[in-house]
Design a protein around this nucleic acid. Structure first.
Length: 280
DNA sequence: AATGAGTTCAACCGCAACACC
DNA sequence: TGGTGTTGCGGTTGAACTCAT
């Protein structure tokens, strides 16, 4: 006998989510907050299992999800983090504000592992492959122009790493504050077509406060703090320029990483402890 | 224009860890 | 301490899309 399914699948919808389902889920979470995924679908009037709702929210509907191409800085960081942590996508995603584990996993499997292989590096071990194992990346076209409109403005050098997730469907966001344990979800809406990234109080991002604290240098108020009750709160007042925040946090982590690399040969232990610190 | 191979990524599945009783 | 329920993670799948022929 097989394992019982996580929930009764009788009569449940599967496959791609409709706009109506997205709206129902979003609206419910705006009012009641995240969590209680098992009972959520019923309460929200969705014919989906809780797991599916959680996944949809975490990977697509969450307001702090960043859409758009992975930047060179980000993919460099992903490679380095992968070398340290392996396929621990949620940990890696936790260090890339606005990126989801699923997105990074997909990006790794479709782009980065191929690229590393083509460069003669084993994507699993990050060690040099013998020449016989080096694979030329398969290519459909070497000289034809890109037909895809959404990719047409990409630099040609970026051709190998085309990554253009669908636009964020939620159009209403700009300012929200979220208290994880109080289930309050204060969401001020304005219309925008992009979603920039900051970590919410979701569990994936716990332990990042040091790195992603304030970004006061450019006039954007961004920050999050621990309330007296110990809960995480996150708040930003403006639709920030995501690239600024992203660059700053990436730079910081990058510097931290580079410093460790410098001492790597002398003290492997420090690198290990850096990796361990990411696990906290 | 048609077709088929290759690519992408949202969604699913099973399992492990965690929380609670 | 063991049982049960819930959540989170990583691997995999397959529909939709892109592009060469």
């Amino acid at each position: 006998m097989g394992r019982a399914p996580c929930c009764s699948k009788v009569g449940l919808h599967r496959g791609p989510w409709t706009g109506k389902e997205d709206a129902l889920l979003t609206k419910y979470i705006q009012v009641h907050g995240e969590g209680s995924w098992r009972s959520l679908p019923k309460k929200a009037g969705l014919l989906r299992c809780g797991k599916s709702c959680r996944l949809r929210w975490m990977n697509y509907l969450r307001p702090d999800i960043k859409r758009g191409n992975i930047t060179p800085d980000e993919d460099d960081l992903i490679i380095k983090m992968h070398a340290l942590l392996g396929n621990r996508w949620s940990l890696i995603a936790g260090r890339l504000p606005g990126r989801t584990d699923n997105e990074i996993k997909n990006y790794w499997n479709t782009h980065l592992s191929k690229r590393l292989r083509s460069q003669g590096t084993d994507p699993n071990t990050h060690k040099k492959l013998s020449d016989s194992h080096v694979q030329e990346p398969k290519k459909r076209s070497s000289n034809k122009k890109q037909k895809n409109k959404s990719k047409s403005n990409l630099d040609h050098t970026e051709k190998l790493k085309v990554h253009n997730p669908k636009p964020f469907r939620i159009k209403s966001l700009a300012s929200f504050s979220f208290s994880r344990d109080s289930s309050s979800f204060d969401w001020t809406t304005t219309t925008t077509t992009t979603a920039t990234a900051t970590p919410s109080g979701s569990s994936n991002h716990e332990g990042e406060r040091g790195m992603l604290g304030n970004n006061g240098s450019n006039g954007h108020e961004v920050g999050f703090f621990i309330g007296e009750d110990g809960s995480d709160h996150y708040h930003h007042d403006h639709m920030m320029d995501g690239s600024d925040l992203e660059c700053q946090s990436l730079e910081k982590l990058y510097e931290e990483y580079l410093q460790l690399l410098k001492t790597e040969e002398d003290d492997q232990g420090q690198l290990d402890s850096f990796a361990e610190s990411l696990l906290i």
